[in-house]
Simulated assay, not measured.
Amino acid sequence: MKPATLHRIAIWSVLLLFAAFFLVPLYVMVATSLKDMAQVRGGSLLDLPNGLDFSAWRKAWSEACTGTDCGGLKPFFFNSILMVVPAVLISTALGAVNGYVFAKWRFKGSELMFGLMLFGAFMPLQVVLLPMSQVLGWFNLADSIWGLVIVHVLVGLATTTLFFRNYYVALPDELIRAAMLDGAGFWRIFWRIVLPLSTPILVVTLIWQFTAIWNDFLFGVVFSAGDAKPVTVGLNNMANTSSSVKEYNVDMAAAMIAALPTLAIYVLAGKYFVRGLTAGAVKG
């Protein structure tokens, strides 16, 4: 056998090993969610389910108890949708404009301002909990979905600005100068020239923000209460609700329901995410 063939076999073997390592927990979750409790108690984690039993999924969606409320994950799931959609769109739009300014319309002190803004991308999130709580309280937005939207927009603004700024730096300055000579202003250049060229980084930012906001637990548990809790908080409450019999199949089904949106995003748009990450990597 040729050395090149052996090398390829070795690479594929290692990749398949790592893929199996990361996929086994997902398999266990899906398989357990499709089993009844008799098979869960009497079998192995790796056993295939005896059949496609979706009763645990139905219970996790609309019947399981999260504390004293036994309405399942359904209300929490829709709370997350109401929170994620505006937060992702607003933070992405503001990041695009900020990145456009810092890359193509630099002003005195812009580099310092951009550097200071980057602190937000690397600052521990726990630092903002107390001041953010005070600000939300002043505006009567505490324990509300719109309060969570504002928190995620502000926290994500540094990252989205960084993404767009690094991407726009790689765009030729001649495009901007030519448009300015033709009489185009700030917003016309942005809408007509820059934004149509931004599809790769738009996809990256939308996926990044959607995943980060949907999976967030810290802000959800601190800044939400009552009917405004996101799905991660509902999942935590469901898993910690004590009952006479611990239904692991329901817990696994609930975890899968909470993870399905992000899994779907990466399955459907994963290749565009990778392309977008590398599109602006030449300059920065």
Rank of each mutant, 00 (worst) to 15 (best):
L125N: 12
V153A: 11
S33Q: 10
C70P: 00
D47Y: 01
L26Y: 12
Y100D: 04
A258W: 00
F139R: 02
G284S: 10
F77R: 12
L52K: 06
S242P: 00
L263K: 00
F190R: 06
S80T: 13
P230S: 12
L73Q: 01
L162V: 04
W12Q: 08
V194Y: 06
T262H: 02
L52D: 07
A96I: 04
E174L: 10
L197W: 06
L48Q: 09
L125K: 12
W57L: 09
L130F: 13
D143N: 13
G120D: 04
V245H: 10
P131I: 05
I213A: 04
I9N: 03
L260Q: 01
V40G: 02
T92K: 01
R8N: 14
M132G: 08
L89G: 07
V169C: 03
E63T: 02
G43S: 15
P49Q: 09
P75W: 03
M180A: 15
I265V: 15
V169R: 14
T5R: 07
S243V: 03
A258N: 06
S244G: 08
I176T: 15
F107S: 02
V204Q: 08
F54L: 15
V135A: 12
D47F: 03
K229E: 15
L206N: 02
R177T: 15
L235W: 01
L16A: 13
F78W: 14
T68I: 11
W12K: 04
V233D: 02
V221S: 15
F223C: 10
V127T: 12
